[in-house]
Design a protein around this nucleic acid. Structure first.
Lengths: 187, 187
DNA sequence: ATTATCTTGTAGCAGGCGCTACAATATTAA
DNA sequence: TTAATATTGTAGCGCCTGCTACAAGATAAT
């Protein structure tokens, strides 16, 4: 009778939505219990402690990421300029914002030194990079570096223009132009 | 007579160091009082409330930033590739890390929606961009975009590779190469 | 010298935090 | 049916949070 495991999975699903909605700040046990339709006592029955709960929810979100990414972009190879263009359009959309904000939250907390959060954040980062590297129509040797550059620039927008990501658009356009120039030079 | 103002300034100085050391997480009033050599009661005498305290310390750090930047880089115009190279070397150094981590902390909290933190973060961001735009040896029309691109990419490293910023170095090198290629194409 | 103002200490409030002890119930196994 | 086990509720612990009421001492103005 693994009712505990079933409930645990349900809780994770509900809390994933909540984390994406509100970030990592609104995570008191009593609040999470309310969101998940249970009690704090029960959360600590399903999970060892709060740390394990948070880790489970975040890794669940991370593992669902790849799927939604391929849904959104397919797997047709794209040149860097086109990929960045498409990614930037997505990043500006409301549907994408929760993921980006949560990721920023996670990175900031990880940079405080928490080893658990660091490992989770790194797993998510490499997930993004691998996915994008496979999608890039560039020489094998440049794939990872190009993917990291694209991602870092988009993330950087989030840091540089908080609350108003689209304001730094000219930086993205600049990078697109650089990619185009490079492509032309290689002809 | 205005002893309160004097003490207030001293407190801000001490707390600026503490914020740079530990980020925005360790900011309980009793802890800050200990660091500043006073009591929580006194902090709330010098400042209206905690919010005003944090704002004062952060803007103090922000206003000291320009000075230390020009100290470090002078004001000789540099091409984008050289500037990025120098900035990246600085970003990897221990001396610089506190500023970057604090900035990331600030951006993450601002992205939660706090209007006060948003305005502070934006002030700091534009400070960086303006400083760098003035330093860039590129056509006037491209200065802001190039500066934002460089900053966003370096910040993005912080998000993408938490706790281990140097691991994403190939992305930076990629951007440097793109800048070099662009410079050559324009000859 | 006497007010008035400025500065500071003591004590505590109401609420949140993660977590647990204990017991009651529900479910399964024998 | 009885006994073991799994699930859940109630209540509360000790500690932290931002903040405040109140009064005592220090300093200044009159």
């Amino acid at each position: 009778m693994a009712k505990r495991q079933v409930k645990r999975a349900e809780v994770i699903d509900l809390l994933a939505v909540h984390f994406l909605d509100t970030g990592l700040s609104d995570t008191g046990l009593r609040r999470l219990a309310e969101v998940a339709g249970t009690s704090d006592r029960m959360l600590l029955y399903y999970f060892e402690n709060k740390e394990e709960l948070v880790a489970a929810v975040l890794t669940h979100i991370a593992s669902g990421l790849s799927a939604s990414l391929t849904d959104m972009f397919g797997n047709r190879p794209l040149p860097p300029s086109a990929l960045l263009e498409a990614l930037w359009a997505a990043a500006k959309s409301e549907a994408f914002k929760p993921h980006l904000r949560l990721w920023l939250d996670l990175a900031a907390n990880a940079n405080r030194g928490d080893p658990l959060l660091i490992s989770i954040a790194q797993k998510i980062s490499t997930g993004w990079i691998d996915w994008m590297a496979n999608l890039l129509d560039v020489p094998e040797a440049n794939k990872d570096a190009t993917a990291a550059l694209i991602l870092a620039t988009v993330d950087g927008q989030l840091v540089l223009f908080p609350g108003e990501i689209a304001r730094g658009e000219h930086a993205i356009l600049q990078l697109i132009a650089l990619f185009r120039g490079q492509a032309k030079a290689q002809e």
